[in-house]
Design a protein around this nucleic acid. Sequence first.
DNA 1: ATAAATTAATTAAACGTTTGTTTAATTTCA
DNA 2: TGAAATTAAACAAACGTTTAATTAATTTAT
Lengths: 206, 206
Amino acid sequence: MNPKETILSTAIKLFGEKGFEGTSVRDIAKAAGVNLAMISYYFGSKEMLFEHVVEYKSSSIRVVFAELAKSSIPQIEKVERIIDSYVERMFTNPQFHHLLHRELSLYQRPQMHDAITEILLRNVVTITGIIQSGIDSGEFKEVDTQLTIATLIGTINHLLISESMCRKLLHKNKDFNPFTSKKLKERVSEHLKQLMRSHLLINNKS
Amino acid sequence: MNPKETILSTAIKLFGEKGFEGTSVRDIAKAAGVNLAMISYYFGSKEMLFEHVVEYKSSSIRVVFAELAKSSIPQIEKVERIIDSYVERMFTNPQFHHLLHRELSLYQRPQMHDAITEILLRNVVTITGIIQSGIDSGEFKEVDTQLTIATLIGTINHLLISESMCRKLLHKNKDFNPFTSKKLKERVSEHLKQLMRSHLLINNKS
DNA sequence: ATAAATTAATTAAACGTTTGTTTAATTTCA
DNA sequence: TGAAATTAAACAAACGTTTAATTAATTTAT
């Protein structure tokens, strides 16, 4: 791996763990095993490195649901596939999601804030359309579409905020790593699907 | 208000807005209109001031559900009252919740991390008991209790992460302040109650 | 093909600020 | 008069960034 990539992946890790202000460029240089000046040389500044990190990572985890929305399967199945996709993506990149949500809650760097909002709300229009179609066709109840999306993302997010809090919430011991547990991923998917079936479907037998 | 209290309330505001590392003691002193040295004089250090902030605020927003749990009303009504209480509390102190969740996602100060985990999970045992009672008595379906709690808290939390993101999610303009909107509070309460009735109740007619 | 010239990559050191904290002197108030 | 409160100034350490010098790689010219 070339030094530029090493810096980038080290920065993702450290910004995710310690936050932007909590991570110094010297921390990054040391952990990446490169000279301090290489960061300015390649990225210009700490803030521009941060922007590169967000841009790089967000494009790598991009998922598009446009095709799914157009397909002719029942809307509830579309919702279930979106749940699987979100759970998979967020559990695979917990540190990056820490970074995104922390930056959102700060509002220290307005343009970064807007960029992150865009990343997180990328698929909201599509999902809104799916739920609305379900309502219009009589498949779904007349729920609060926007808050339903908040429930989907918020549930997953809350479990990812902190390893130790997740462990305590689930009454697990220290051997249990929530972020790599395949069982937990499946459990969250199953919970959300069941929740959404009860919440959305008119004739639900569960 | 005496200088000690002024420092404390200013610190809550600034730590909430800019984070711990993002706030300097000079920022706090200047905003509070006191001399820089007063912070060390009253609180010892920046970190001890932070601990005071968390301790002070968390005790002031403490709610105990022990009595509610023991009362003889239907379990679903207990759940609904807890929803109202959580929504009210979190929407009234959005900055403090920013602070708590940001600190949780960082794990920079382990003992602070544990203290915050304790604050956030304070009522989890009680709520777990309520849902479990509902399941045992046949009032509730056999849901995933722990993840149901994650859904409750996570939904509210997701809306509080960022003013601007909440506005975009709800398609509101800049005049709309999510954190002070009475309508949004009621809307979130209503959404969560409806969600929980569908999710929990065996014989739900909605 | 090889030597010279040019560009790119990498380094250690230093820059000026800002950081949290402490000092010692002064003011306030009981 | 004496303890508590408040101040301006200074402290060393850490910060992001820049500099100028050196090494490595690539291009050009012969």
